[in-house]
Every structure is written in structure tokens, then in C-alpha cells.
Design a protein around this nucleic acid. Sequence first.
DNA 1: CGGAGTATGCATACCTGGTATGCGGACCGC
DNA 2: GCGGTCCGCATACCAGGTATGCATACTCCG
Lengths: 193, 193
Amino acid sequence: MSIRHGLLALLERGQMYGYQLRAAFEESTGSTWPLNIGQVYTTLSRLERDGLVRSLPESASGQRPYEITDAGRADLALWFATPISRTDRPRDELAIKLALALTTPGVDVRSVVQTQRTATMRALQELTRLKYSSDNPDDLPWRLVLDAMVFHAEAEVRWLDHCESSLVRHRPPAAGPTPLSEAVGHSGEEARR
Amino acid sequence: MSIRHGLLALLERGQMYGYQLRAAFEESTGSTWPLNIGQVYTTLSRLERDGLVRSLPESASGQRPYEITDAGRADLALWFATPISRTDRPRDELAIKLALALTTPGVDVRSVVQTQRTATMRALQELTRLKYSSDNPDDLPWRLVLDAMVFHAEAEVRWLDHCESSLVRHRPPAAGPTPLSEAVGHSGEEARR
DNA sequence: CGGAGTATGCATACCTGGTATGCGGACCGC
DNA sequence: GCGGTCCGCATACCAGGTATGCATACTCCG
């Protein structure tokens, strides 16, 4: 429900139409998360259906602007006043992956951890590069979004190291080959049955 | 695509049918993320459509077990060998919310930050309580999943504090009332147009 | 025994977020 | 004026996910 409230917040600034909304949304987070234009229209029509937004007559140039209603303002205020709870966050794909790797036969968990760690470190470097090569150091929202990603990436690296040491403590280092990894590259042989 | 590969990994252990798969999936992460039964069946049929899985004839008691194919094994190995990149993660709803709060008129950003911080700290306490009141200290996958959530929550608190101090540096403390917050509770007055 | 209640395996309908594509008008260059 | 291309907008469709329906089978009684 992030986009729904995001559009509402933008409309709180004043009337806007579809493309303006997309541009404003992407700009407000420094184009970190792109927003599909089709999604904007479907979300707008749902917002109108729910009475949180009202569509205005088309302008001369054909754009259909929307404005927020009082009900929409109330919903928006409620959103800002309500913390995001742990239960309504998306699944942590990395955690699931590692948990499954631990119980799947033939998987070298250590190399999964190391591969991920390398990738995350690379992302972290890219983020700090972005942070300091910025040409708009006064864009506070964008800087905070970037910081959020840095903090998350750092936590992920710490967690991966923690996994590594837990593995050393609880699992004997593997001796034999890792059967599953040999299956890569033979895809499709069975699929065409 | 997390569930897709999750089910594949479970089938790598051996043949299983729908309910077994759901139970195994939930158990492997300590029932942290529930999995809907309907999702299991739709995902299984898509996996079969894509040749990664093969359905076996119904057993006498009516269950239809599935087994992984060689193509499925290859796909699974590829998944384990490929790190999760920053770009295919879901949107960070909290970061978006705060970025929007900064540019939405009439929003008290400080109170948004504080409300979230309180909620996250509470979640953190709950997590540590869970961690130490565990009756199965040898369940390594579950412990690591729990640790992942702890690390994320800690990073979130740090980030919120960072936002707080950035706000103090860059924004003068608000003086007037916060108009938007007064709209709460009047929802619907305009909706019935 | 028989019938109500309940758990289980399975299937379907539907909602939501998202991408790809179609379409008409405005603004070019020539 | 005419073809191209960009823009604002809309539609169709797909995938992931939840809620719900629906049989069968099992249990627990009177």
C-alpha cells in the first residue's frame, strides 16, 4: 500500500495529473525506486473509487488532474501517524534463502554466504560513491533514502558475518563435493520431455 | 520469486505434496512468514508448466505428490549461486514515507520518526525475548532468521536516530500547529460527496 | 450404526502491484 | 501539408497472494 499513500501525499501539495505524479514520486526519493506509469492510473482510479481523491475535468491540453478529498487527507494523516509494523513487511528473501540452504542436501552454504557478502559489499561501495559524488547536497529526502540503504546494507554484511561464524561453530566444514552445483548448465534436458 | 525457489529447494529433499510443502516451508523459517496454501498450488502448477517440477499420480489417499526435475535442480543451483541484488528488493516503505513526509505540507516529521522508533524498539524487544525463550536452541536456520530480523531492526533504529539529528541540523523546529493531523477522525465526510 | 462436527487436500475466484502495448494529439523538420 | 516522434493517457494482461468453496475422510458421540 505504499504507492497509494505516496500518491495521496503528493496530492496534498496540490492538484496533479498522472505523469506529474510519477515524476514527483520518483524525484522525491532521488529516482531510487522507479514507478510504473500504468500503476499510477490504476491506483488513482482505486483512490477515486474509495473516495480519497476526486478527478477534475480534463484541461484544455487533455490532462486529467486529481485532487485530494477530506477523507483522503484523513487517511493520509492516519498513515503518517501509524508506524510500519514488523508483520506487514515483505518476506526477507535472503534470510529464507539461507535458511533453506541449510536444510537442502548438496548446497555449500558457506559459498552462498560469501557470494552474497561480496555482492552486498559492492553495492555498499556504489552507495557511498553515490553519496559523495552528489551534485545536490541539499536534497535532504534523497540523502536520507540513500542513508537508509547504506544502513541496511551494513546490517546485512554484519548478519552474513554472523552466519559465517555460526556455521563454523555448528557445522563441520564440508569434505565431499557439492552435488547440486554440478546441475547448473544442464537445464532443459528434462524439461522438453 | 522467493516462493518458487523455496518450493524447489524443499522438493530437492524428496517428493512432497501441497500441504507438506507449506508445512515444511513455514517450519524452515520458524513460522516467521506464513505461506498461503492457495499460493502453493498455483506456484506448483507454474513450476510444472515451466518443466522444473513433475506431478506424480495421486496416491491412494488422494494426495498428488510432486518431484523436482533435472531442469528444476539446475534452476535451484543457479538460484543458490546468484546473490540477491539491490535492485530486485522491494521498495523500502519506511524510507519512502519519511522522504514524502519531508515535502508534504503540515506533517510533523519529528513525531513520525519518534512514533516509528518506539514501534521498532518494541519489535526489537519482542525479538530478543523470542530469541532467549526458545525451546529449540539447536534450530540453526530459525535462529539465523531471527538474527536477521534483529540486525535489520537495529539498523532501522540507528537510521531513525540519524534522521532525527539530520532534521535538527537542517530544519528549524516547527512553531505552528500541524494541520494535517487534525484531519484524522473526520474520514468519510467528503467521501459521500 | 449413523450422523454431526472437524480436519485435510485441493481448486477457484478475485484483488493488487506491475509491465507491455495501444492510441491520439502536439510538436517538430522539411 | 505531411510524416515522424514524443508525450499524456488508457487498456490488456500477467504474477503473486488471500479468501473461500468444496469434497473426502476421520472422530466422537448417542
